[in-house]
């Protein structure tokens, strides 16, 4: 019986200590203005249209495109596999499971990149992970993937390869026809850097 009393007292006193101390605010997720500037300068939140096109075509299961435009715009055109969360409803409980999760790579997009950047900033401040922004939005997407500029014949190989990739991707995603810029022996695809997916340890009995 004595040990039980001692153990109870130990637990209770530890509980009293932890209850007397205010919640540790320093560890709560809140980015300072400096950190925010640093993140912006690093442009870490951006994923280029080439990367997204590659992920869509290879049917990467980690990719979750989120269309921030209004429902009518979404119905008119949206990227394959995208879900519609109008920016005004971003923090609705209904969508929380999509926005605050650790399994998929969320990519926000809107027409330009202002709205998606705002969405990214809000979710980043809330401490949500795995949210990214489609660089340049749908306008830049249309410019690069759907109607890529034909490079000069004298352009470096990478540029021609990038053009060929975009042309192919555009065709696969419902754009124009495939028509290589010139007869390259082996088109080198632009390097697509995959983001490592953060793992989280799962618990259970």
């Amino acid at each position: 019986m004595r040990t039980r009393i001692i153990i109870s007292i130990v637990f209770l006193s530890l509980g009293l200590i932890i209850a007397a101390i205010p919640n540790n605010k320093t560890l709560n997720f809140k980015m300072s203005a400096e950190e925010m500037i640093e993140e912006f300068n690093g442009r870490y939140q951006f994923i280029s249209p080439d990367e997204i096109a590659d992920m869509i075509i290879s049917e990467d299961p980690n990719l979750q495109l989120i269309d921030l435009r209004s429902e009518s715009e979404y119905k008119e055109f949206h990227l394959p596999g995208a879900v519609n969360i109008p920016f005004t409803d971003l923090l609705d409980d209904e969508y929380r499971y999509l926005v605050d999760q650790n399994l998929k790579i969320n990519v926000f997009y809107s027409n330009g990149s202002v709205t998606s950047n705002e969405a990214w900033m809000v979710t980043r401040q809330l401490g949500y992970r795995n949210n990214y922004v489609l660089e340049g939005g749908l306008n830049y997407w249309a410019e690069t993937i759907m109607n890529p500029d034909r490079p000069e014949q004298t352009s470096p190989n990478e540029e021609i390869a990038r053009y060929n990739f975009r042309k192919g991707a555009g065709a696969a995603l419902g754009g124009g026809s495939i028509e290589p810029a010139n007869e390259m022996p082996e088109p080198v695809l632009p390097a697509i850097k995959k983001r490592p997916q953060k793992k989280r340890a799962q618990g259970g009995c």
Partner: peptide, 8 residues
């Protein structure tokens, strides 16, 4: 309530 109080 705070985490600590909940713990207690």
């Amino acid at each position: 309530i705070s985490d600590g109080l909940m713990a207690l």
